[in-house]
Design a protein around this nucleic acid. Structure first.
Lengths: 247, 247
DNA sequence: CAGTATTTGTCCGTATGTATC
DNA sequence: GGATACATACGGACAAATACT
């Protein structure tokens, strides 16, 4: 007979667990309302403080939202990458996650996104990418250019039809940009950077249009490397090379 | 002049923010202790409940840990991917994404993991993979086999040196297994499945040993496809094909 | 449009089990 | 083993905010 080590589980955690399970299993869908705090303390047989601590945790995890004075009770939110973004951001800030690691992961994700998008894209999705690219070409302001670039990569990710890829790409791009934006501001030749970036995007998009996934993947990764590698510590740069050569 | 919309910021949120900033900026390093709840309510000039709600949120985010009766106060934790794991897991569970999408993402991640691992692995990491494979070969019980399989893939992910890849792979494997475990239980020929899976793993590992990343990537994705594709609805199966052919 | 009831946000006090010295 | 300080959990209370009649 095997016994499990007994773990002290606090009251508020069990409240969190039950509500979380109800949301995850779909018994509570986004938009629906939870009972009021007083009703919850009756149902769970705990004090209001305990209920409140549980609700705070759920709110911090972007599972629910509660506002004062709302008689309908806390609202169940739809799944969002907010919590994912926060935890990844914290991990990156704590230097437990170097820029090299982040860039490696981004090259991996975006390369695969190109590969899939080239094979699966519809004409409408291709048009979205081309629209974003045209938007990039028209901007001279770096901030606007960056936003259009963001839209381009989002369009590629959406074309894969994979929600996980969209969300993870989104988060990784944002956090990576946050890490180097101060360095980019000081770059004197942003114009040249933007021009070369635009050219790279054009080439990749051509490969996607011709349904050449392998080439799109290779070009996309190479472009990311050329763009960001100089900000990556030399020691970490070796981690990126296998993503360039062999594919 | 532009004005920002005024947002009602609650007391406990400001407590969270201050402590979080202190940890992120390094003024509070892992292992250090926070003041006790009573001291905190004096410093922040708020009530006990407010302090407690803030600590609950920080604890849920894996920033601190507090135990009853510890006179040293709440402990500052080192940054860990635990929170990332939780939020990604919730996202993967909630979006009721299909098995096809999940498998697509897993093929993408694990293929890239093989590609990187083949190029970056050390001898010690190779030995870990071989140990996990030997463990798989020795098991006839499906549960034990599955655990060893899990360890194998974890070893591959670790060899890439990328914590994000490790965590994402972990989550995707767990969720995917949860979705099909009931179907696998009813498979009559689990023995044959295990045997063929073992053979596939051997081939992939050989490619990793020979530092042939492209082949390892291709073999790994093919193995995943052969293993799980039959449980994927036919309509979704097309989403997986681009990951097989072109690489 | 105003009034009312309800809910949340915050505070205070107290009892209990627990870890450390 | 005892003393101390701590977190956990409970209950009651009031003000601000919101929704509904």
């Amino acid at each position: 007979m095997e016994f499990e080590p007994v773990t002290q589980v606090r009251a508020y955690e069990r409240v969190v667990e039950q509500i979380e399970q109800a949301v995850l299993s779909g018994r509570l869908s986004p938009g629906q309302r939870l009972p009021s705090e007083r009703d919850l303390m009756a149902q769970f047989q705990v004090s209001r403080s305990t209920v409140r601590e549980a609700l705070r945790v759920l709110q911090a995890g972007a599972v629910i939202r509660s506002r004062p004075g709302d008689p309908r009770g806390p609202e169940v939110l739809s799944a969002s990458p907010a919590a994912l973004h926060k935890s990844l951001h914290r991990l990156a800030m704590a230097d437990h996650l170097g820029l090299g690691e982040l860039l490696q992961f981004r090259m991996l994700l975006e390369g695969s996104a190109y590969l899939l998008a080239a094979g699966l894209r519809t004409e409408a999705q291709l048009a979205e990418m081309e629209a974003a690219l045209a938007e990039m070409a028209g901007k001279t302001d770096y901030a606007a250019f960056s936003r259009a670039d963001y839209a381009f990569h989002q369009a590629v990710a959406r074309a894969t039809g994979n929600a996980l890829l969209v969300v993870c790409g989104e988060v990784v791009r944002e956090v990576a940009l946050g890490l180097i934006e101060d360095k980019l501001v000081h770059a004197e030749d942003r114009r040249a950077l933007m021009r070369s970036s635009l050219e790279h995007h054009r080439e990749v998009l051509r490969a996607v249009r011709e349904r050449d996934g392998a080439r799109a993947c290779r070009l996309g990764r190479r472009a990311l490397y050329d763009y960001y590698a100089e900000y990556v510590p030399a020691a970490e740069r070796a981690k990126l090379v296998p993503l360039l050569d062999q594919l």
